[in-house]
Amino acid sequence: MYLYFMGLFCYFMVFLYIKISLGGINMFRKMKLWCASTMLLLGAVSPVYAEQTPTPIEVYYAPLQFVIDNDVFAPHADQKGFIYEGSTYVPLRFISYSLKKAVRWDGDSYTVTVEEPSATDLVSINDYNVNTKIHSGVSKQPADTSSLNSTQIEAYKEKVNYIFDGNSKEIGADLPGFIYEGSLYVPLRFFSESVGKKIEWDAKTYTVSAKTQEAPKTEVEPAKPDTTVTTPVVTGGGGGGGGRGGSSSGGSSNPAAEAQIEGKLLALENSCRAELQAIVDKYDSKAIDGKTAIEEVKSMSAGCRSRFDAIISEGVSLNISDSVLKGYKSQFEQMQTDAYMLLLNKYGK
Rank of each mutant, 00 (worst) to 15 (best):
F94C: 03
L276P: 01
V324N: 10
G182Q: 02
F12P: 00
I311A: 11
G236C: 06
Y110S: 14
L268C: 08
K198V: 15
I134C: 00
T292N: 01
I95N: 01
S323E: 12
Y185C: 14
E116W: 01
S98M: 02
K19D: 04
K264W: 10
Y328K: 11
Y2G: 08
K217M: 13
Q213T: 15
S323R: 10
K326N: 13
K224L: 11
K140Q: 12
V138C: 06
S249C: 09
A36Q: 13
G263S: 12
S46E: 13
P91C: 10
V123P: 04
S109E: 11
S301N: 03
P54T: 07
I153L: 08
I153D: 08
S209N: 03
N319W: 03
A36R: 04
E333Y: 05
G240Q: 14
D202T: 14
L16E: 13
G172Q: 15
L184H: 10
F82G: 08
T231Y: 13
Y156W: 14
E262P: 02
K298R: 09
A74W: 00
K346R: 14
E193T: 15
P54W: 04
I68W: 03
L40H: 04
A143I: 06
I179A: 12
S96K: 01
S313V: 07
T227A: 11
S317P: 02
F15T: 08
E115W: 05
T205C: 11
E85W: 01
T205N: 04
R305L: 00
D69K: 00
Y110R: 12
E181Y: 03
V112M: 08
E296R: 02
G81N: 09
A143E: 09
P225E: 14
P142K: 10
T55N: 05
A293K: 03
A173F: 03
V229E: 14
L343Q: 09
L343I: 15
